[in-house]
Structures are given as structure tokens and as C-alpha cells.
Amino acid sequence: MQRPPTTPSATLHLSPQGMLIAAVVMVVGIVVGMPHAPLEVITVLALVVIIGLVARVNVPKLFLRSLIVIPIAGCMAAFAPLRLVSEWSTSGIAQAYTQGAGQMTELILTPWMCVLVMLLLAALCPEKDLLYALERLHIPQAFTLLLTFLYRYVGVMGTQLTAARRSVLSRAPNMSARKQVLLYGNLAGAMLVRAHDRGERIYAAMLSRGFTGSLPRIERHRFGVLDAALVAVAILLGFAFVVL
């Protein structure tokens, strides 16, 4: 009996390494292709929506999450026209902002589209698959090993942090904000020491179970014809963004 696909990437029959390459190529195309024509923006957004719907990703949530980049991009866009100021007066600054309106729009649109592409990738491929993709793309082993452990220990750290926060809340529910800031350091130190102790135990247990540097995976994704087609489309689109 055939097992039903478990991840969005499996639904699309694509390998994580193919999707990672395609996403990076698209991001590079979007960044290098600045400034963008409206057609380019519509193409990127349509692609994200279509792929998201086909892979049964929560598209509205994806768009909502992508707004994370707006505060920093908006801040930088707000400062950008200042370099065009020829005279430091109200009219000079206003003129600079009129001239720099296009650049401001670009500085907000570009990072937003890039974040959308990367969040779509993250929604399509689970963390473990992306780690496997990095391994297949010959990222140094010391590095992938560290990412593997990071993936493993983020959960451990989360558990320890929740326990410590509960403990602080139960002991000092009315602690002032200033004292809380001072407490962060000690709390972080306690997290480090506890997680390190637990991490060493986990590492010993992993070694005893035959851990060889990468986490075992159920599915093996090979870079196939569909992946090659996906990367080719991404390259063509990226090239089009740059040239047009």
C-alpha cells in the first residue's frame, strides 16, 4: 500500500535541494532585478499563491508572516531619501523625499517579496529536509552537524525556558520590568548550563545509538527531472527580472 504524502514538498514531488536552489535563485533574481516593473511583482505574488495553494499551504498565514520584514525595511526606506538632500531645509528635505519615493517603494517591495519566497520554502520543506538538502549541497560537515544539533536542542532549550519562566512567575509574580531585565542574564546562564548538561547526555545517548553525524530520515529525495525543471524555471524568471 502506498503511503500518503506527509509534507507539502512530497505533495509536489520535489526534492528539498531543488526547492532550496530555486528559492535562492529567485531571491537573487529579485534583488539584482531592482527596480521592479509591476508585472514582475504580480508574477512573484501569483507564483507564491499558486504554489502555496497546490501544496496546501496556509497562504493567508504566509502573507501575514511575511509582514515581519516591514518594520526594518520601512525604517531603512524612511532614511534612504536623506542621501538625496542637497539643502538641509524643510523644502530641501521634502524635495529629496519626492525624488526618493520610487527608491523607498523598492526598498519595501524587494525584501517583502524575498521573504515571501523564503517563507514559502520553509512552509514547503520541514527543517529536517532542508538540513538534508544543505548536506547534499556539500555544506561543510562541521556546519551541518551544528545545524542538526541546533535543530535538536531548540526544543530542549524551549522546555527548559518554559520551566524557568514558570518558576520565576510562581516565586515573584509582581517583579518589576527593571528587575526582569537584570534577571535575564542569570536566567540565560541557567539555561545554558542546564541545556549543556542535558545536551551532553543526549549526545552520549545518540552516540550509543549509532549517531554518525546526520539524523536518520524516512524519505530519500533525489534531484530528479522535475527538480531540474523547477530550477530552470527559477533561473529563467530570475534572468528575466534582471534583463527586463
Binding site: 561543510p140 562541521a142 556546519f143 552537524l145 551544528l146 544539533f149 541546533l150 535538536r152 536542542y153 531548540v154 530542549v156 532549550m157 524551549g158 525556558l161 535575564y184 540565560a188 539555561m191 545554558l192 541545556a195 549543556h196 545536551g199 551532553e200 549526545y203 552516540l207
Partner: peptide
Amino acid sequence: SWWIRKHLDGSKIVLMAVLAALIFGL
């Protein structure tokens, strides 16, 4: 990466990973 492969043993990877997770959380 080369420096780590040359100078650090497996147990240090644990500390590095824990620290990475901590920094990520903080």
C-alpha cells in the same frame, strides 16, 4: 570550519549547539 575540524572534539560541538540554540532563543 577548518579550524574547528582541526582543534575541537565532539563534546565541544554540544556546547556550540547549545549556545547556538540559546542565542537563537534570546
